[in-house]
């Protein structure tokens, strides 16, 4: 009987097919880069646009050939900034509470609640921003201060949207800190707060920082909330209570209409898309790098 390893054609074919499945993800990335890059090159090759005007202009009016990206960028950053001032403190406090304070029973009830919050589609959050948060803000601050469409309410609701993301990632990081550290801290007479904030949090800092960065990236890429609640039409403003269109909101509005291929409008959304892609990608890569570089290993 020959017990040597036989070449098996079927096995090789299967392995080849499975490799292709894995390769599709790489092809997706290449596709994204190629498509965004190609259309952006076409965009910048047209006469009306150049890089200097794109990154230097404060007016985005495709109808009259003004393609300055800043109004879209400032609106995006403003909404994200507001979102982060809501999400980071609340998310971190929730994470500390769940990981360091909550009894197991409470935790097992509260975690699913946060997961529900994370599972609600963003269009529902957009509806919430427009029909609840905006009237609330207008009621508190006055109808003439706050416009119907504004970045503040969109930003706050994006903040609510990313709370579960921040809290669950941070909580994972906090819980990964070994219990012996906590025991030692208690043994030295530290209170629960001191243990949580001065022992556990610093030990988990890389994970928490990564969570923050992923949250920022998520907020920048968030689309439906701003498309519904932040307003249509680019507006170079620094007031959070005015209507302003973000990068994602602009892409949605332009592509929602009848868009003819090979028009400068069509190409322009890909240029915005490329900027958005590079921005979020670099944030994601940064967060992964932080986790790898600064992770504290306890064995």
């Amino acid at each position: 009987m020959d017990l040597r390893r036989k070449p098996r054609v079927g096995e090789s074919i299967i392995q080849g097919f499975l490799f292709l499945c894995g390769a599709i993800s790489v092809l997706t990335t290449l596709g994204i880069v190629y498509i965004l890059g190609r259309e952006s090159v076409l965009f910048f090759a047209s006469e009306e646009v150049n890089l200097l005007k794109f990154f230097g202009g404060t007016e985005w009016q495709p109808a009259i050939g003004r393609f300055g990206i800043w109004p879209l960028v400032t609106a995006t950053l403003m909404a994200s900034l507001i979102a982060m001032t809501v999400a980071l403190p609340i998310g971190l406090c929730v994470a500390i509470y769940l990981s360091e304070y909550a009894p197991d029973r409470t935790r097992s009830i509260l975690k699913p609640v946060l997961e529900i919050l994370a599972g609600i589609p963003t269009v529902v959050y957009g509806y919430f921003a427009l029909t609840f948060m905006t009237p609330l803000l207008r009621g508190i601050l006055g109808r003439d201060v706050v416009e119907i469409y504004n970045t503040a309410s969109a930003g706050i609701v994006i903040g609510i949207l990313v709370i579960p993301l921040v809290s669950s990632m941070s909580e994972d990081a906090l819980r990964a800190v070994p219990g012996t550290l906590r025991q030692a801290s208690y043994g030295l007479g530290a209170t629960r707060l001191e243990t949580a904030v001065r022992i556990v949090l610093p030990a988990a800092l890389s994970g928490v920082a990564a969570a923050f960065i992923v949250a920022i990236s998520r907020a920048i890429g968030e689309t439906m909330i701003v498309a519904i609640a932040a307003g249509a039409g680019p507006n170079f403003t620094f007031s959070p209570f005015r209507a302003a269109e973000t990068m994602t909101g602009h892409i949605v509005r332009i592509s929602g209409g009848d868009l003819s291929y090979d028009s400068i409008d069509y190409n322009s959304i890909f240029a915005i898309g490329l900027l958005l892609f590079l921005l979020t990608l670099s944030l994601n890569v940064l967060s992964q790098w932080i986790v790898r570089r600064f992770r504290e290993e306890y064995e």
Binding site: I32, I35, T223, L276
Partner: peptide, 11 residues
């Protein structure tokens, strides 16, 4: 997994 969904729409 971290690419904004709208980018997939453009793809």
């Amino acid at each position: 997994a971290g690419v904004p969904s709208i980018i997939y729409g453009m793809l």
